[in-house]
Nucleic acid binder design. Structure first.
Lengths: 280, 280
DNA sequence: AAGTCCCCCATTGCATACAATGAGCCACCG
DNA sequence: CGGTGGCTCATTGTATGCAATGGGGGACTT
């Protein structure tokens, strides 16, 4: 009765970018969206595993609702379950993965897309970016102008990418992310980087899905970006903050409109791996 | 030259509250600040370990700068290193712990108090709470009034606690936290809960230290709280948001003033545990 | 054929084993 | 007596072992 109905099937044969086995025709090399993390993360493997998995999720390679199994990831990535476990734990806390079982053992699946998530995430990121934009707008003029120029460049790239046929969802969502990183990182301290770095890819995940819809509109978003750039250029903190918050508010409906209510469940019962063997 | 100079000594013989070995005379039973986390966290042990450690840090029982050692925690808590590792990883990402080594092996210490942290944390939490307060202020009148009454009750408790001699830093920081939780949780979705739940105890940690200073002022803070309550009561979203943001801005200087620049380093060299043995 | 029960195994949770690293200390040398 | 280089062990990083759980499918009954 309380069954989670959106659990999808397995995600096999997925190109990763991490282990460059295969690169899709329409692929776009990600600029390692992980923020320049001053002090290096704890270790290599858990961090790397986290990034690879998150990239797969954000860029739709592991679809919403798919089960994610520790041993399977470990096998595919060629590491033991321990670092995978650490990565999964982090992905749970950042809400890329959600538990799908009731009992003690927690089985995991990629979080579904929901309209409530859009509203909440967009509001939160609006607040944070609004503050960041206002801080950026009061930087010394030379830095402001440099940021504005960079943002303008990215925005033009975005316009070009939106005009392509077919569109490249990887590239589009990546450029949108880079635009916002462009002014947020300018003034962010370590806490902001940490929070924003965990949150922004959540948004990017929705942007990616948005980009796969043929009728997706980018013109309005690009125009709103220009307002933000102008405010930063002229050094008007309040206007910059308002422009950012307005941008995100307007984006809520644009995005919600193309979110499918819920992906379908698997054909019969919950799929279980046929056999996840040891390293072989 | 680049040595981390604030690494303090070990934290032994610390009362926990978790394993109720010993309760200090001036102690205050914490209302498990962990947010009501709808879907249960992954498991028992890592979550529980995380909470216990975070509580020890927030309430000053493991002092800023102290080394935290996996095996030692495991021993003291009576669990294996695996769940401890998961907890530590989370505490790192939420910036309660920081790496103190340069090489590959990451040794950990409790994050130092810094004035930059205060500024950044207070600004971030101000943005988030400002939004939350504005949402709370537009709730239906009956709920608003209920929230306002609850906030008023907590604020009076806080005033009473501030008048005690000697003051109880545990109780004071706990009440401050509960005041803010009082309106944030009212409208928070899962993402906000997750972010705020990781961030708020960081602030509480500073509030705790603040509370240990005899000359700490609470009157102004309590008065600002009343402004917030009034705005929520009358349903004025903009005023509520501004009241909250102003409150946090004013708190920045109050708090920074009592932050010692840096705790001192250990007498000679970095202390190492004499021997952390197996379960015995 | 439909229903029910039970057993099996896929998967997780936790503990432990093993390898690697690098900081301090001691011995030795100047 | 001060410097220095190598050794040792405290501590972390990763892998693996082992127990527990519970969902699903197959076997059995009717």
């Amino acid at each position: 009765m309380n069954t989670v109905s959106w659990i999808a099937n397995r995600w096999f044969a997925i190109s990763d970018g991490g282990s460059n086995l295969y690169r899709e025709p329409n692929s776009y090399t990600p600029t390692s969206m992980t923020l320049p993390n001053s002090e290096s993360a704890r270790t290599a493997l858990p961090e790397r595993t986290y990034e690879r998995l998150r990239n797969l999720i954000v860029r739709g390679r592991i679809p919403s609702g798919a089960r994610v199994i520790e041993a399977e990831v470990a096998l595919r990535f060629g590491v033991s379950r321990t670092p995978v476990r650490e990565a999964l734990s982090r992905l749970i806390h950042e809400r890329y993965l959600v538990p799908v079982t009731s009992g003690k053992r927690t089985e995991l699946a990629v979080a579904p897309f929901t309209a409530e998530d859009v509203r909440e995430l967009w509001e939160i990121i609006g607040s944070l970016e609004g503050y960041a934009a206002s801080m950026t707008a009061i930087l010394p003029e030379n830095r402001r102008l440099k940021v504005a120029d960079e943002l303008r460049r990215i925005n033009l790239e975005l316009r070009a990418a939106a005009a392509e046929h077919p569109r490249n969802a990887d590239k589009l969502s990546e450029l949108q992310t880079r635009f916002h990183l462009g002014f947020v990182l300018e003034t962010a301290g370590p806490h902001m980087r940490s929070i924003y770095g965990a949150l922004r890819p959540q948004v990017q995940r929705y942007e990616w899905i948005y980009g796969t819809h043929a009728e997706a509109d980018y013109a309005r978003s690009i125009a709103e970006h220009m307002t933000i750039i102008a405010a930063i250029r002229e050094g008007n903190a309040e206007r910059a903050q308002n422009a950012v918050i307005t941008h995100w508010h307007k984006a809520i409906s644009r995005t919600s409109d193309v979110i499918r209510p819920a992906p379908f469940a698997s054909p019969r019962g919950k799929p279980r791996a046929k056999s996840v063997k040891r390293k072989m």
